[in-house]
């Protein structure tokens, strides 16, 4: 009886481990997770700056400079492995990246360059005063929107 039970337990454990192995994220899922996490970090830092720009928080040059510096780091992170083939919105439910992105990689790259320029401008002016922050943040929003406009599904 005990043996039968322990056999059953071993079998159950084995099954469980098989299930766990199957449920681990695929490389495609990892890529989508990574790029969406990256976007969340952008949003987190944009939120600090946006609160000031929109008048919901008092302007603080130090906080603004720190958030802009974080964005500047983020925009330079290596994104290789993010945009794997097979990870478009047509291929994965959790993805919002349109297939058009992979057909226009050069343009997407140019749009990322434009984002880098906008973030550099933000980093160098966010600490000057509120008006400079507002102007530079507007440019960053436009750069984000340019890519979302062509290459992102409105809503899943």
């Amino acid at each position: 009886m005990i043996r039968t039970l322990s056999l059953a337990a071993v079998a159950a454990l084995g099954l469980a481990s098989v299930t766990v192995a199957q449920e681990g994220p695929t490389p495609e899922q990892q890529a989508v997770n990574a790029r969406q996490s990256h976007m969340t970090l952008y949003a987190h830092n944009l939120g600090k700056l946006g609160a000031m720009a929109q008048g919901n928080a008092e302007y603080n040059a130090e906080t603004a400079t720190a958030a802009a510096a974080s964005l500047h780091h983020l925009v330079q992170l290596d994104q290789s492995g993010y945009w794997l083939e097979g990870t478009s919105s047509e291929q994965m439910e959790e993805s919002r990246a349109l297939p058009a992105l992979w057909q226009n990689l050069e343009d997407a790259g140019a749009k990322h360059e434009a984002l880098m320029t906008a973030v550099e401008n933000l980093q160098s002016t966010a600490g000057t005063d509120l008006a400079s922050l507002q102007a530079a943040l507007g440019g960053v929003g436009q750069a984000c929107g340019a890519c979302h406009e062509n290459y992102r599904v409105p809503q899943n």
Binding site: Y42, L46, Q54, G145, E149, R152, V153
Partner: peptide
Amino acid sequence: VAMLQSGFTPEFDVVGGEMAEVV
């Protein structure tokens, strides 16, 4: 109002698709 002015949502996502044109 803030989204219509800047494109930033309350979560500080930036709207895309046709809505980018609208903004």
